[in-house]
Write a protein that binds this DNA or RNA. Sequence first.
DNA 1: TATTGTTATACTCTATAACTATA
DNA 2: TATAGTTATAGAGTATAACAATA
Lengths: 156, 156
Amino acid sequence: MAVDKGEAWAFAGRIMTMGDALSYRLRRAQHAVLQDFVETFARLDLRPTDFAALLLIAGHPGLKQSEVAEALGIQRANFVAVIDGLERRRLAERRREGSDRRVQALFVTDAGQALLDQLIPVWRAHEERLVARLGGPAARDQLDLLLERLYDAPAA
Amino acid sequence: MAVDKGEAWAFAGRIMTMGDALSYRLRRAQHAVLQDFVETFARLDLRPTDFAALLLIAGHPGLKQSEVAEALGIQRANFVAVIDGLERRRLAERRREGSDRRVQALFVTDAGQALLDQLIPVWRAHEERLVARLGGPAARDQLDLLLERLYDAPAA
DNA sequence: TATTGTTATACTCTATAACTATA
DNA sequence: TATAGTTATAGAGTATAACAATA
């Protein structure tokens, strides 16, 4: 491809669009993966955040709401509706049990644990579908590494 | 894969959380990159979609609204506000010029082109910042390849 | 009938400020 | 004063239905 002259936004001989942007590819990939996830869990009426919260609380019983929210990367204010929903469905529960009566300690109920036991294989299948698209476990590990560099790196 | 008993959600001997999920890493990475992008362009009051639209129209003058919307991956209904904004600021314009009087052909104005000429280096700097985080151009190419596999692949 | 641009609407996610009860 | 949880609210981004003009 030649072509240029005059148009300073052309680079290395070709017209640039956001298709050349990493942010664009990330957005497309994230959207595709999210769709697969949502479709996988839709029939169970569980959104990604619900599942992530259940999984985290099951692995670390007694975590505070604000700790779970932070680990999930959402505002504690926005986590209230999430835990409200899980509690209403009797999948998780809040308990004021420490000496500090401000904190809500979180636990997964037996029903929540039973649901998780069902869901883990479904999630694993979802992950394996993605690994297959990527070309195998080695490719997945490579992708994990690269993605981590993007968000672990100091903000420039 | 052995290990299980009782807690079926523990796998390979460790507690699983969404931190092990590809969707989670993608979300984090996409968020980090988007933040860098937004901060880079914030002082110019240009959001990612504005920039992407300008760039695309500049490279392909006369595109229809619906074509730009589709290329950008947004609904044509939601693109109306985007092009409204660009037109109000005299960066792009709509023209009914074909034989089909339903279509709006889009063009970048001189002011829009001048802004783009300023913006391209800023965008390039943003991309180079990301490449540096990734570890170099080879890593970026590798990431591009992997991301494309995620969204180009048939939906399973 | 079908399509282009448009309007209206709704739903999710995210972000912020301010309140309450505790500490 | 400060903190945990909560409420309310506002802004993006996204998705769908329906309409007018035109084909």
